[in-house]
C-alpha cells in the first residue's frame, strides 16, 4: 500500500517539474476535449492531424530566431497553423481540389520545411524535442499559456457552439439564411490550432493531436451526444495524462508518447467494451425490443 502511494504521489510531491507537467496536461485536457469532439463530428480528424504537423515550420522559425524559447516557438507555430488552415480552405474553395487533399499537400510542405529549418541551426536533440515534445521542461510561462488557451477554448466553443453544430450537419442551412457559416468554421479552426500550439510543447508537433482526439474518439463508443461526448472524453484525457506522466517518470521514457499511448489504451478499451457499436456488442448483441 505504501509502495503504491509512494509510486503514485511521490513523483509529484518531490518534483516541481512533474507538478507543472501534470497541471499543464489537465488544463490541456479540459480545453481540448470539446475541440476533439467537433473534429470527429466534422470528419476532420485527419485534417486536424495534418494541421498539427503544419505547426512545425512556424515553430522552427521561432526556434531559429529565439532558440528553444516557448513564446517564440508558440507564436511561430500559431501563425503557421492558421496560415495552413486558411490557405487550404481557400485553395479548396476556389479550385476543385478537395479540402483533405489540399490539407495533405500543405502539411507535407510544412513538415519538410520545418525539419529543414530546424536542421539549419539546431541539433538532432532539438529536433526531437520539437517533434516529440518535452513535457518535463514545462515552465511557469508555458503553464500560463496552456491555462489561457484552455479558458479561451471553453469560452470560444460555448460562443460558437450552435452555429458550429448547424454547419456540421447541414452546411447549406445557414447560407440559405444569409448567415456566413464559414466564419464559425474558421473560428473553430483557430481554436483547434491554439490547442495544438498549447499541446505541442508537451506532446510535440507530431503528436499534438493525441490528447485532443484520442479521448474524443474513445468517447464516441460510449455516447453520441455532443456535450456528453466531451464530458466523457475529459476524464479519459486527464487520466491518460496522469498515467502517461507516471509511466514516463518511473521508466525514464519520453513523456509525449507515454501520454498518447495511455490515451490509446482508453481508445482500445472503449472500442472493446463501449456501450455503442463496440466489439462487445458485436460479439454478444443484446436482445432486441418488441417495438
Amino acid at each position: 500500500m505504501e509502495f503504491l502511494a509512494s509510486s503514485l504521489f511521490d513523483p509529484f510531491a518531490d518534483n516541481g517539474f512533474m507538478r507543472r507537467a501534470l497541471v499543464a496536461c489537465l488544463a490541456l485536457s479540459a480545453g481540448s476535449c470539446t475541440v476533439g469532439v467537433f473534429l470527429i463530428l466534422r470528419r476532420m480528424s485527419l485534417m486536424g492531424d495534418a494541421l498539427a504537423h503544419a505547426l512545425l515550420p512556424g515553430a522552427a522559425i521561432g526556434f531559429l530566431l529565439g532558440g528553444l524559447s516557448l513564446p517564440a516557438m508558440s507564436v511561430g507555430g500559431f501563425v503557421a497553423g492558421i496560415a495552413t488552415a486558411l490557405l487550404s480552405g481557400v485553395v479548396a474553395r476556389f479550385t476543385s481540389l478537395r479540402e483533405d487533399a489540399s490539407f495533405a499537400a500543405a502539411y507535407l510542405t510544412a513538415l519538410a520545411a520545418g525539419v529543414m529549418i530546424v536542421s539549419l541551426k539546431g541539433s538532432t536533440v532539438d529536433l526531437m524535442h520539437i517533434l516529440f515534445g518535452s513535457i518535463l521542461a514545462v515552465d511557469d510561462l508555458s503553464l500560463v499559456l496552456v491555462a489561457a488557451t484552455a479558458s479561451l477554448t471553453l469560452l470560444g466553443m460555448a460562443a460558437i457552439y450552435r452555429p458550429l453544430v448547424v454547419e456540421c450537419f447541414n452546411p447549406g442551412f445557414l447560407a440559405a439564411l444569409g448567415v456566413r457559416g464559414s466564419v464559425y468554421h474558421y473560428a473553430f479552426l483557430a481554436l483547434a490550432v491554439l490547442n495544438m500550439v498549447a499541446a505541442f510543447q508537451a506532446l510535440g508537433t507530431l503528436m499534438a493531436l493525441g490528447l485532443l482526439l484520442l479521448p474524443a474518439v474513445a468517447a464516441s463508443f460510449w455516447t453520441r451526444q455532443v456535450v456528453t461526448m466531451a464530458l466523457v472524453a475529459l476524464p479519459m484525457a486527464a487520466a491518460s495524462a496522469l498515467i502517461g506522466l507516471l509511466v514516463s517518470y518511473h521508466s525514464s521514457l519520453p513523456s509525449g508518447p507515454a501520454i498518447v499511448l495511455a490515451a490509446s489504451l482508453f481508445y482500445i478499451g472503449s472500442l472493446l467494451l463501449g456501450t455503442r457499436d463496440s466489439v462487445r456488442l458485436r460479439i454478444a448483441p443484446p436482445a432486441h425490443l418488441r417495438a
Binding site: V165, F169, V226
Partner: peptide, 9 residues
C-alpha cells in the same frame, strides 16, 4: 444527401 443525418442531434 446534403444533410449529415448521422449527426448526433
Amino acid at each position: 444527401s446534403d444533410v449529415d443525418r448521422s449527426f448526433p442531434i
